[in-house]
Design a protein around this nucleic acid. Sequence first.
DNA 1: CAAGAGATGGACAACGTTGTCACGGTCAGG
DNA 2: CCTGACCGTGACAACGTTGTCCATCTCTTG
Lengths: 329, 329
Amino acid sequence: MKDVAARAGVGLKTVSRVVNEEPGVTPDTVARVQSAIDALGFRRNDSARLLRTRRTASVGLVLEDLADPFYGSLSRAVEDVARAHGALLFTGSSTENPRREQELVLAFCARRVDGLVVVPASDDHRYLIPEIEAGVATVFVDRPAGRIDADVVLTDNAGGTRTGVAHLIAHGHRRIGFIGDQPGIHTAGERLRGYREAMADAGLPVRPDWYAMGPTTPERVRAALATMLTGPEPVTALFAGNNRVTVTAVRVLSGRPQPVALVGFDDFELADLLDPPVTVVAQDPAGLGRNAAQLLFRRLDGATSEEPSRVELPARLIARGSGEIPPAY
Amino acid sequence: MKDVAARAGVGLKTVSRVVNEEPGVTPDTVARVQSAIDALGFRRNDSARLLRTRRTASVGLVLEDLADPFYGSLSRAVEDVARAHGALLFTGSSTENPRREQELVLAFCARRVDGLVVVPASDDHRYLIPEIEAGVATVFVDRPAGRIDADVVLTDNAGGTRTGVAHLIAHGHRRIGFIGDQPGIHTAGERLRGYREAMADAGLPVRPDWYAMGPTTPERVRAALATMLTGPEPVTALFAGNNRVTVTAVRVLSGRPQPVALVGFDDFELADLLDPPVTVVAQDPAGLGRNAAQLLFRRLDGATSEEPSRVELPARLIARGSGEIPPAY
DNA sequence: CAAGAGATGGACAACGTTGTCACGGTCAGG
DNA sequence: CCTGACCGTGACAACGTTGTCCATCTCTTG
């Protein structure tokens, strides 16, 4: 910038004015500066600019795994909103590891991002308190923050599961299994709750061998399913607590002579092309991202000290067939 | 930092030394400074630090669409490599729009990222020349750069397609169709070339109504497929030039009495669960990302003025059944 | 005991920008 | 011709760090 000023025969500040399109510079001067800029290939250093203005025009997004299509859609939505507000996006995958989450968040804070969108991997976010007090707007998404009170955007996991299980009940099932992720994960717990509530609402019992919570590896899902299908009171339908469970269940069930009804949480591509087409309770990952980002920028733009808000997005039943298989007695 | 220094009763530079774990500070002083840091909740401002050291420890990744699982895997791989080198990752989606690509790239450059990984959306990257000369390491991935000579990591699109088409030929097909993306896209052109070569290698003709290039919307794919299947010399097999084409083809073909063999470029989840299971030529998106990022950091760490290098990753045929359907005469 | 060596600490400038303020020139009105 | 308002411009400090260099203080050694 100094070089540009020298070449154009003006002061430093005038170059700054031209670069920022501030008013109050003679067209003639603008032209001179502009041609010096072009000649020297000058480009403003935004790092320095932002050091001075104390706004980095960037937000950090911490999620579980960028390679997961669910988070892919979510990121894309956050990115679109950020772009509309002229901000750039840092992304990082926590891989469901609390330490890694914290490292990423603090690295972003050290870069002085304006705001943070976080899919929690940890259950204690008190480490964020100083940052939030220092003015970093923070919104949690998909799962609530742990031990602090903060903005959050969630899917109605319990409600969605209730709808899905009710769908199975409506098609005549009374013995329904549930396989979910590790109970420590908020969404998994909520979905289990929804399952229990739906069963209770219909006056149905839940036998302990009808549900299983734990890591959703194919082997474990396979084993849990075997238990449910061979016990004294075998289930005639399954609610799969997430994507991975659903896919494994489809594989296992497709090989059985006795058809088993299935509803899964989370939609996935090609669900309609399987045989039978898989009924799901669909979340809206883009909606989560969009809402979280919008909330973030609302905080950033204005109202500094509102109450933390909580947005809950509905989950939608998409009936495709696998949930309508009648119970086999 | 000034406040920390005052509270600990030391100089500014000593705080800096403690924060950076530089040697030459008495354990006693370190403790004093440390407790002042904790008391004040001080966190180093990396923006300022990086302004001073002239290294931002961040790289920019521009790709087509973060929500596409292919790019999700790619990003994740880039992120992992970046993390191993202590760098943070900016991401941005160009949405296949050259102007948007340029905006993103230049925004990243204005932030003074150390390096850039770009999936080209434009066919002219001369706008990057000043940036590259200014020292921004740049690696292109998935598609080569336009009109400049730069590092690039590609999949062997033509070779992979040859393998896939040869697979169909080996199973007795002589009339094989090809549906690809818009010919302006490099990968689409390469795949078309591979198709032509495989046919030529087998001494087979290629009729003009056997291949179609263009936007891969379901409607267009459906129409193209209809033409191929009802012409004077209908095809008995199809090579689908990408993911979206494959999925649409599966939908269309599954409704036909006469089975049509199918091989698709790009693997996708659940391909093995469809009926018939879909044979594909699989790329390695994570491999693309990993190689590109590694190349980037090799440039960053050392050798400044090597020749641009070109890495080509193989594509792998995964035979699952749909390619082994015999021709129906 | 003097002097050199080594350890420890701090003052200052610099990184590349922007905000503040003051300066000089032009122009209209008295 | 003078005054005051207004406009365009530039000097300077500041943003929060780190690199350079020098000062001091404490040992050790001759």
